[in-house]
Computed example of a mutant assay.
Amino acid sequence: MDEIDELIIEGLRENARISITELSKQIRLSAPSVTERIKKLEDRGVIEGYTVKINHKKLGKHITAYILFDTHRCQQFVQFCQSYTDVTECHRLAGQYSYLVKIVTEDITTLESFIDKAMYYGKSSTLIVLSSPITHRETIR
């Protein structure tokens, strides 16, 4: 991957809906060359897909929390998380805790309900997000 590929990825990261024409102008490369490079990045698996950034608060989901779980019932816990629509991420960890779960939910009541149900699988420690000065950012270097 060279500097031009990095510029293409940066342009797509800022706006995944940018037209090839506009992206080619930004990086000063022909549109066919940009298209070819994007295709190669996709074929190599560097670009896995294109997503939508959702404003959860506008959907009535005002609480974001990260919950650390210590469990020995890993497979069942993962199935529980997969069935719970407010769970947006679930990561297996090494160390003191088994999993880190990100939940985006309506309010403290729905968060507490999730925690209560999840306690069946083990112990938890909850961290509630107050603000997010940096949200999702992909790194390429």
Rank of each mutant, 00 (worst) to 15 (best):
Q26E: 14
Q26K: 13
I27F: 01
R28K: 13
R28D: 14
R28C: 12
R28A: 13
R28H: 10
R28Q: 15
R28M: 13
L29P: 05
L29S: 12
S30R: 02
S30V: 07
A31L: 07
A31Y: 00
P32M: 10
P32S: 08
P32I: 00
P32G: 01
S33T: 08
V34I: 04
V34R: 08
T35H: 10
R37Q: 06
R37A: 03
R37E: 07
I38W: 02
I38F: 02
I38Q: 13
I38K: 06
K39N: 12
L41Q: 01
L41I: 14
L41C: 02
L41D: 00
E42R: 00
E42Q: 12
D43T: 15
D43C: 05
R44Y: 08
G45P: 03
V46K: 10
V46G: 04
V46Y: 08
V46H: 01
I47W: 05
I47G: 07
E48Q: 15
G49S: 11
Y50M: 05
Y50F: 10
T51D: 07
T51Q: 00
T51Y: 11
T51H: 03
V52W: 07
V52S: 06
V52H: 05
V52I: 13
K53W: 02
K53Q: 08
I54S: 02
I54T: 11
N55G: 12
N55E: 15
N55M: 13
N55I: 02
H56P: 09
K57R: 12
K57V: 15
L59F: 08
L59R: 05
L59G: 10
G60N: 10
K61E: 09
I63M: 04
T64P: 01
T64L: 06
A65W: 07
A65S: 13
A65G: 09
A65N: 06
Y66P: 06
Y66G: 01
Y66S: 10
I67P: 01
L68K: 02
L68N: 06
L68A: 09
L68R: 02
F69K: 02
F69Y: 05
D70H: 09
D70L: 03
T71V: 05
T71G: 05
T71R: 00
H72T: 15
H72F: 01
H72C: 01
R73L: 01
R73C: 00
C74K: 08
Q75E: 10
Q75V: 14
Q75F: 10
Q75S: 04
Q76I: 03
F77V: 07
V78I: 10
Q79I: 10
F80W: 11
F80E: 11
F80G: 15
F80M: 05
C81L: 07
C81Q: 09
C81R: 01
Q82D: 14
Q82A: 12
Q82P: 00
Q82F: 05
Q82V: 00
S83P: 09
S83N: 14
S83Y: 04
S83G: 14
Y84E: 13
Y84C: 09
T85I: 04
D86R: 00
V87R: 05
V87S: 02
T88Q: 06
E89I: 01
E89H: 14
C90Q: 05
C90F: 12
C90Y: 04
H91D: 06
H91C: 09
R92V: 15
L93T: 15
L93N: 00
A94N: 14
A94Q: 14
A94W: 06
G95L: 02
G95I: 15
G95T: 15
G95Q: 12
G95E: 12
Q96V: 13
Q96A: 03
Q96Y: 01
